[in-house]
C-alpha cells in the first residue's frame, strides 16, 4: 500500500504548456502516471503531449475525473492556481513552483484546508508511490516499491536517501517532499500520521534540515503516536546561524532551528538519528533486514510476526 497517490490517482497538470510543465508531464507519463488533463487558461480545446488541455480546473475535473493536481505555474500565479484546484474539488495539490511570496501562501494554506483539500509544498519535488504513480519532478528509476515511507524537506537530498535505500533493496511505500519554504501545506506531522496509519508502511525515514521547528513538532508527535521505527537525518549541522542556506526555510534565527536541539528532540522521541548522511541506507537496512544468522534469529521471528 501507499499514501496519498496510487493507481487511482488521476492527475491534472496546471501550467502543462509551459517549459517546466511540459518537461515533467512527459516524465510523469513515462513513469506510467495517469495524467488525464492539463490546464492553461486560453489554450483549452487543444492537446499537449497527447493530453487534453482545458481553460479551467472546473472543466478539467468535469471532463476527466481528475483528482490530483501538479502545479507548475510561475510564482505570481501559483496561489491562484492552487485555490482554483481546491475550489474545483481536487483533493491533493502538489505545488512544485519555487519562489512564491510568503503572504500568498498564508491565505492559500487556509483556503485549501477550508475546501477539505491537501496541498504538498510549495517549492517541493512532489510525491511518488513507486510502481504506482509519480506526481512531481523526482527521477522515477531510483525508486523501488516497498515498505519504507520517506518524508523530506529537501529535493536532491531525498533522491540521495532513496538511492541509498533502493541500492540496499529496501523499497519505498511513498516518498513525499514537503518543501523547503517556511509556510507549507503539509507538515512532517501530517505525513507521519498517514504513514503510521498505512498498513503498507513498516518504517519511516524523515529528512529534516535546520531552521524552524518542524522537526521538534514531529518529535513530539512521534513520541505520542508513532509505533513504527523512525529514522531521521537533519541537514545543516555545520551551517552558521543567521545565514540562509538556499531554502527560504533553512536559517537558524533567534536561537531556534539549530541542529543540536533537533537531534535531542528526535532522540528523546526514540528516533534513530543518523549522523553520517552516507549511512542512512545502512542504518535502515541494519534494523529492517536482519541477516539470517543464528544470533539474529530472534529478530527474524519478530519481523515475521509483524507481517502477519
Amino acid at each position: 500500500m501507499s499514501i496519498l497517490v496510487d493507481k487511482k490517482t488521476r492527475v491534472v497538470v496546471q501550467g502543462i504548456t509551459g517549459k517546466e510543465g511540459s518537461f515533467h508531464t512527459r516524465g510523469m507519463l513515462d513513469y506510467g502516471t495517469k495524467v488525464v488533463a492539463g490546464v492553461t487558461p486560453g489554450k483549452g480545446g487543444t492537446k499537449h503531449l497527447g493530453v487534453p488541455v482545458f481553460n479551467s480546473l472546473e472543466e478539467a475535473v468535469a471532463e476527466t475525473g481528475a483528482n490530483t493536481s501538479a502545479v507548475f505555474v510561475p510564482p505570481p500565479f501559483a496561489a491562484d492556481a492552487v485555490c482554483e484546484a481546491a475550489e474545483a474539488g481536487i483533493r491533493l495539490i502538489a505545488c512544485i513552483t519555487e519562489g512564491i511570496p510568503l503572504k500568498d501562501m498564508l491565505l492559500t494554506v487556509r483556503e485549501v484546508t477550508r475546501r477539505g483539500a491537501r496541498m504538498i509544498g510549495p517549492n517541493c519535488p512532489g510525491l511518488i508511490s513507486p510502481g504506482k504513480a509519480k506526481v512531481g519532478i523526482m527521477p522515477g528509476p531510483i525508486h523501488r516499491p516497498g515498505k519504507v515511507g520517506v518524508v523530506s524537506r529537501s529535493g536532491t537530498l531525498t533522491y540521495e536517501v532513496v538511492h541509498q535505500l533502493s541500492e540496499r533493496k529496501i523499497g519505498q511505500s511513498t516518498c513525499i517532499g514537503i518543501g523547503g519554504d517556511p509556510i507549507i501545506g503539509t507538515s512532517f506531522v501530517d505525513c507521519l500520521w498517514m504513514f503510521e496509519e498505512d498498513g503498507g508502511t513498516e518504517a519511516i525515514v524523515m529528512i529534516g534540515e535546520i531552521g524552524g521547528s518542524a522537526e521538534e513538532e514531529a518529535a513530539a508527535f512521534i513520541k505520542k503516536h508513532v509505533s513504527k521505527p523512525v529514522f531521521a537525518f537533519v541537514a545543516g549541522r555545520t551551517a552558521p546561524p543567521g545565514k540562509r542556506m538556499g531554502h527560504a526555510g533553512a536559517i537558524i534565527a533567534q536561537g531556534v532551528g539549530g541542529w543540536p536541539e533537533k537531534r535531542a528532540a528526535l532522540e528523546a522521541a526514540g528516533v534513530e538519528v543518523v549522523e553520517n548522511p552516507a549511512r542512512i541506507g545502512d542504518a535502515v537496512a541494519a534494523r529492517l533486514k536482519p541477516k539470517r544468522k543464528p544470533a539474529a534469529q530472534k529478530k527474524t521471528v519478530k519481523k515475521g510476526k509483524k507481517k502477519r
Partner: peptide, 27 residues
C-alpha cells in the same frame, strides 16, 4: 559544488564529520 540546498548542506556536514571543513555552501 552541489545541486540542491539540502544536499549542499549535507555535503558540508559530511566533510566536517570526516575531519575537513567546507569553504562554502554552493547550490
Amino acid at each position: 559544488v552541489v545541486n540542491g540546498a539540502g544536499l549542499a548542506m549535507t555535503t558540508m556536514d559530511i566533510l566536517h564529520l570526516l575531519g575537513g571543513e567546507a569553504a562554502n555552501f554552493l547550490d
